[in-house]
Design a protein around this nucleic acid. Sequence first.
DNA 1: GGCATAAGGATTTTT
DNA 2: TCCTTATGCC
Length: 682
Amino acid sequence: MEKIFARLNEEQSIAVKNTEGPVLILAGAGSGKTTTIVSRLAYLVKGVGIPASNTLTLTFTNKAAKEMRERALGMMEDVSYPPLLCTFHKFGLLFLKFNIHLMGRKNNFVVIDTDDKKRIIKKINSEIATPLIASEISRYKNSLMTPDDAYKQAELYNYQQIAKVYEEYEAYLAENNLVDFDDLIALTYKLLEDNPELAKKTSEKYQYIMVDEYQDTNELQLKLLQKLCSTHNNICVVGDDDQSIYGWRGAHIRNIMEFDQDFENTAVFKLQNNYRSREPILKVANALIEHNRSRLGKELKPTRGSGEDVVVLNSHDESEEARKIATNITKLIDSGVSAKDIAVLYRVNVLSRSIEEGLNRARINYKLVGGQRFYDRAEVKDLISYIRVITNFNDDFSFKRIINKPKRGLGKASVDKLELSAHAAEKSIFEFIKSSSVAELEALVRKKNAKTLKQFIKDIQSVAKVAEESTYNFIDVLEDTFSLKDIYKSQPDEQERILNMDEFYALFRDFIKNNPESGLDEFLNELTLQSEQDQVEGESIYMMSIHASKGLEFDHIFIIGMEEGFLPLVGDGSDLEEERRLGYVSFTRAKEKLTLSHVSSRFYKGRRSDLEKSRFFNEAGLCQGSLKLEKNTAFKKGDLVRHKIFGTGRVLGVSKAGKEFKLNINFAGTKKDILASFIERL
DNA sequence: GGCATAAGGATTTTT
DNA sequence: TCCTTATGCC
């Protein structure tokens, strides 16, 4: 018990002890959010005496769940039964496993990922952009809209089409007993909604509910939470409205803004002591985020004392920027800073390229975080498809992926014919080939391929038998039977692909070793929900998008591309306040020193364009004429200056304009008033 | 069916 | 620029 509170400050302790009823913990960046939520869980179990199995703690990522589980178990020492601490989706998966039969479906369903989803959509409709349909379907599901509802709501012809695709997509999933990511939550909610007894029982089981990163929840997740705590209202959410950066993905910032309206008698706690960053960094971050209108209002209070000022790098173009950053990093490393304590962040991934070149030239090792995920790699997905077919012969979707891998002389045309005939016979493709004679198949595909197909079916059946008898050995038999490593034979990236396949095989063996009772379908569903855990280790600096950096911290942070158009990024659907929060998230990753870089010109999308420095410099108080320069004005009468459009001129006078300075300048006889931040001194 | 070339598009990303 | 997709030819 003392152990739990020893590491908490007063605010954190109060929040931890407030166990009953709805609690909103607004935790600023670096304020000990994870420590607080984990301590609260430990306190519930060890201090209040709640059985761990009666608690439920939800996160968004497996990584967060894993970290919290380890820390919580460490604090709780001996518990006979561990608390349920998992992602929203994992919770949905578990719940559906036990209850999906109530809606007339079998519980051996397979979870499909976004890629699978898009393939299915594309097959149904290739006229409308697949990503648009995919996101619309996601939206429908998250608003609990049936295809019928979607159709009724559709005004434009295009949207009627999308509603139609949605309907067919749902039929396809049901037919093949598939479930997509949204279903894991939506079907869970539906079951609770349609079965009041079940809802009551479930709510009574999870007496105490906690949610991490609450600012990232969407509307449906809120509704699910309301169902889950309907019998007790013991819900504690932790989050930071200023770090809501997933609005574009459906996260609903209003959930955290209006938590007290969704749950009556909410107790609110603010954690504002920042244990991460030096004072100058927090000053800049606070100044920036203060420009947002829609926020609950917090201010990060420094506890780590003063430190180095925030540095602004100004370069002509991206190669100069890369050079400057490489030089700065080299200096840091030479002065004894460990490479792993340095990170370069950017708003869009393409910006990493120029920096990569600069780092390579300077011989600095770097690690790119993000990029393509292991489970999204084609070779890994091929293997997964094989296992899926072996688990379920009727999974046409996966069957089609592997039917010509390695090459069996079946192209799109042949596969289409097979599928059509199978459909007409009301069979899966697998069943169709199995039940057809060689002669019948010869009518559909090239002659020599008919036999190959029959053999393929036999092989699948025999490997499936092995899987039942000895799951552990199955993976070797799979490779040997189908020569899967030949799929990418004599391709330039063959070696890398084989390495990934071996990695996958090792993963499989690990899983079976750790879960000897599990079969292939448990392995598959686990996989789909698994993301690549970024290993943060090794002697290289890190480069990643600002989104990917959320939750991480580094001693030294460099943010590149601080220009209008990049940060803030503009485009349709862009939200300046969310862009500002991205700036805030990126600034607050830094513990010791923050460096912000901008260029005047950048090569992007095949062309070079001129760029203005980000307005965020101004807002963060980092511009000439800003707070720091109040005493010693950057410009004075007589200075020779330059403006992007008006060219060179001479300052005639300096006056104040809010927090900024306004200069009266004589440009070759034309006098103009211009804000100081747009002016460059010569 | 598979390869080569042309055309077009282009945040952020977890589950 | 770089990547994905469409098209045309063998």
